[in-house]
């Protein structure tokens, strides 16, 4: 005979959904990002011109009906280059963060779970990495590896490993003392299984939320590295290199630098709004304010 009634609790995802669906900033961020992603994906369909096609006759044309955002020093359409540049920026941000998240989480979880000397050693190295500004570290690595899209992604990924490791390590230390981890060990689960199956899924939401904030920082780093000439080599359009080129003519052709800057601003803003909303939704201390 059983007289128990199972407790009915609202599940984790739907509670999260409730928390940020009421947040207008979340919707603004989501809308902005959706537009930017759509633009990047549909670039060949919506770009009015070929982003690489030069036109000496139409050099440095101000914004007009033909060239909505004007043309650059080689007569290329700024709007089309901006649209194609979105692909590079988003891809660099996404791939670099994915790499950084994978490596950083692994390091953080192993260091936190094993503890002791290994933990102190790893966190010491990461603290040194964290003490450099991301741009400086990226600059060093990009200069060492040389300028290419792949190296740019590697450089940015390395700069973002340390923060991911830290975010993964702290909950690991708390989780490894949880009853279900000890119960798992009592059932004979090995350390790899405990870390992968029992600890990782319990901290992944924190990490994913943070990754949207760091993706914004990765996109900024990409733009900065491209601006100083260590990004993707020309003629591939990227927002950072467009600003760099526009910088030379900033006084007589303002549109060259202003539009790519606005694009970066909007993308970073969208990601930050999303990240903040997600963090608020997950953090119980900030909930209900």
């Amino acid at each position: 005979m059983t007289i128990e009634v199972a407790s009915v609790a609202v599940s984790q995802p739907s509670r999260l959904w409730l928390a940020f669906s009421k947040n207008p900033l979340f919707w603004l961020g989501a809308l902005l990002l959706a537009i930017i992603v759509a633009v990047a994906v549909l670039a060949p369909l919506i770009a009015p011109h070929d982003p690489l096609e030069q036109n000496i006759v139409a050099r440095l044309e101000p914004p007009s009906a033909e060239f909505l955002f004007g043309t650059d020093n080689y007569g290329r359409d700024v709007l089309s280059r901006l649209i194609y540049g979105a692909r590079i920026s988003l891809m660099v941000g996404f791939v670099a963060i994915l790499i950084a998240m994978t490596i950083g989480c692994t390091i953080g979880i192993v260091a936190g779970y094993v503890g002791g000397v290994l933990d102190q050693l790893v966190m010491g190295v990461l603290d040194v990495m964290l003490s450099f500004p991301a741009l400086l570290l990226g600059l060093m690595i990009a200069a060492m590896l040389g300028a290419s899209l792949q190296n740019l992604i590697i450089a940015i990924a390395i700069t973002e490993i340390a923060p991911f490791a830290r975010v993964a390590r702290a909950p690991t230390i708390a989780l490894k003392q949880q009853d279900f981890v000890i119960a798992g060990r009592a059932l004979g689960f090995g350390p790899v299984r405990i870390m992968g199956v029992h600890i990782l899924p319990n901290l992944i939401s924190d990490v994913v939320v943070m990754s949207s904030l760091w993706m914004a920082s990765a996109i900024r780093t990409e733009a900065s590295l491209s601006f100083i000439g260590l990004g993707v080599p020309p003629p591939t359009p990227t927002w950072g290199s467009m600003i760099r080129e526009g910088f030379d003519n900033i006084l007589d052709a303002w549109w060259l630098a202003v539009f790519p800057s606005l694009a970066i601003l909007l993308t970073v803003l969208a990601l930050n709004l999303l990240g903040d909303a997600l963090r608020d939704a997950i953090d119980p201390k900030l909930r209900g304010e």
């Binding site: 009853d179 119960a183 009592a186 004979g188 899924p201 319990n202």
Partner: peptide, 24 residues
């Protein structure tokens, strides 16, 4: 030891509310 734990000798704990992995 891992091949003994859970296989030949098993253990149950005091706190049923926290002894199960919430994500599985």
């Amino acid at each position: 030891m891992s091949s003994i734990r859970g296989n030949s000798i098993a253990m149950i704990f005091q706190e049923p509310m926290t002894s199960l992995n919430p994500t599985m």
